[in-house]
């Protein structure tokens, strides 16, 4: 049996994440210049971008961990895929909200058929459904297997959703010119710093949830053993 104590590395990652995020606040609001046309609202970009990025990494993690679970039947992979899906749904949800605010300000609409936004929305739905599935009252083996299969199928769908959303958008008149491109050097540095900082946060959260899930499973086992 693995030890059930939290690894000492984990709180450390959490602390680093906290410090890094604090540093990012400084960089976002002091170091990076205010963008000329968008004004202060442009700062939301520094949150939106890392959130979207790491939510995609979450879903990739679910995919990889699901395959690993089906191959090895090791429960740590099941715990990891569950944790990554939770963090992914949280991050993609926040990315959608920030993206929507951005869209309202820069293109005057709350929602647009931007392929990236659409893909994020569809993924949010898929993985929210996946989380509901994980709460079903099924035998543990069956639930683990079923979740892993859905976790794999869901990620296979991502490129197709993106392609279809891009094709779909070509019907509608483009509501905005391509964004990005001319970022100033300070802005670029800030974005990269934010992505890294959110990465630490992502690792800490996912790790914590995975450890909690493993412990919950362990407690279940102890509880059934004592009742028997």
């Amino acid at each position: 049996m693995q030890t059930n104590r939290l690894s000492p590395v984990m709180p450390l990652v959490g602390i680093v994440a906290g410090l890094a995020l604090a540093l990012c606040q400084y960089m976002i609001f002091v170091y990076a210049p205010v963008e000329q046309t968008m004004g202060i609202v442009q700062k939301i970009f520094y949150f939106h971008m890392p959130l979207a990025w790491w939510s995609l990494i979450s879903f990739l993690t679910v995919f990889v961990a699901s395959i690993a679970f089906l191959r090895t039947r090791n429960w740590k992979w099941d715990a990891l895929s569950g944790a990554a899906a939770e963090v992914g749904v949280l991050f993609s949800g926040l990315a959608l909200i920030t993206g929507s605010i951005w869209g309202r300000h820069s293109w005057g609409v709350w929602w647009t058929w931007d392929p990236r936004l659409t893909t994020t929305l569809v993924m949010w739905f898929v993985y929210a459904g996946y989380l509901v599935l994980r709460t079903l009252d099924l035998p543990r083996e069956r639930l683990g297997t079923v979740s892993a299969v859905v976790g794999i199928v869901a990620f296979l769908d991502v490129p197709l959703v993106f392609l279809s959303a891009r094709l779909w958008r070509s019907i509608h008149p483009a509501v905005f010119a391509s964004k990005g491109g001319g970022l100033e050097a300070e802005m670029k540095t800030t974005v990269i710093a934010c992505i890294v900082a959110f990465g630490f946060l992502w690792v800490a959260l996912t790790w914590l949830r995975a450890a909690q899930r493993r412990m919950a499973a362990r407690i279940d086992v102890l509880a059934t053993e004592t009742t028997i």
Partner: peptide
């Protein structure tokens, strides 16, 4: 264990690419 409603919430978003194609 899984009901129709659950199957639909898992299935529908996954079907988005074909549904968009079918609709267009």
């Amino acid at each position: 264990a899984a009901r129709e409603s659950l199957l639909s919430i898992v299935l529908f978003p996954l079907l988005v690419p074909v549904l968009l194609a079918g609709i267009r």
